[in-house]
Design a protein around this nucleic acid. Structure first.
Lengths: 177, 177
DNA sequence: CCAAATCTTTTGAATTGTAAATATTTCGCG
DNA sequence: CGCGAAATATTTACAATTCAAAAGATTTGG
């Protein structure tokens, strides 16, 4: 027997609820996340490497001999994940790993000839459709979109503040609220 | 639909990097993905539900009595994932599921009182930091950012064309289901 | 009444991140 | 100079999420 309430927040009925547009942002972001995920699975099935793996491969090419940590920062993946990915790439002989002679803790990674060859033949990581559409836009529009994404990313990157145990509660987890 | 580009001619090779900005887009998108993922894990640890779970919960609230399929479309998650999430939400008594009386295949989901109460106390799903920053922007800027995201999402959503087995070789699975 | 279609769930495989473990270097201090 | 603690870099162990594909149920149509 639930009460029908047309108003969501009991306190104020003003428009422009605080999380309104933010929520829209989240929804769109999820759409993007899903697109990228699906595309990654698709690519993985057809070429044998996921998008993150390809990104790492590109990063290795671009950065030369890099450490896992540096790589990790560049591709926005945790060190552990980078290790996993490098395992795969190494297994396919697309990269080589070797410990630094000066510091044995450090592991350098570099592209093999196969890796380089593979990358040369690599298709755009995003859908052809996306790339052609995007490249079809006016440069200024491209800039605007990219800039917007960067702003969003920067705003998101920043905070990892801890707000709120509202469900589990600090002390009472099962009390009727 | 999409223009065919002279790509299989084999010419191509090297150039002014056509996918240059596209790639920048991808990088930034990955940054956003990671941010959201980290935030989701953080929220999960503190409140016991991940962001997707909260999104589904919100969707159930907003849409009333919904089927999994409808829900799936709204939250940009596969039906299978929605099922998994609903299992959890039901386990916590935040939603109820019941089969449609008219069509037994269909399962409706609706919010319980607990679910409603939980949502009222829910924090913004994105970082506080992000929300406050974002809300601090001029409305027009907010619109612009949102609009940009939507454009990106739309461009990405579209294509799931299959291009290229470049690593596994020219021959790939011949049968497409 | 059987076959095709529809909606949901289960199964199985893959990715990712946190936390702990491992290895190595650096540095303080006797 | 040498020993051990702390710091640093990477990897392993483990848990959680997601999706595609197949399986279950149920309805609809010929």
């Amino acid at each position: 027997m639930q009460k029908q309430r047309t108003q969501r927040d009991g306190s104020d009925g003003r428009q422009g609820a605080p999380g309104d547009r933010s929520r829209a942002v989240l929804i769109v972001v999820r759409r993007i996340i899903r697109s990228v995920d699906l595309q990654s699975r698709h690519v993985a099935r057809t070429v044998g490497l996921t998008i993150p793996q390809l990104i790492v491969l590109q990063a290795v090419r671009d950065l030369g001999e890099v450490t896992s940590t540096t790589l990790s920062a560049h591709v926005s993946l945790s060190p552990a994940t980078v290790t996993t990915i490098l395992d795969k790439l190494e297994g396919r002989a697309l990269v080589e790993r070797y410990r630094s002679s000066s510091d044995r803790r450090v592991v350098h990674t570099r592209l093999t000839r196969e890796g380089d060859a593979a990358l040369r033949k690599a298709p755009p990581l995003l859908q052809e459709a996306f790339v052609s559409r995007f490249e079809g836009l006016k440069p200024e529009r491209q800039e605007a979109l990219l800039s917007a994404l960067e702003d969003i990313a920067t705003m998101m990157d920043a905070g990892t503040g801890d707000e709120g145990a509202w469900l589990l509660g600090p002390e009472r987890a099962q009390d009727e609220v």
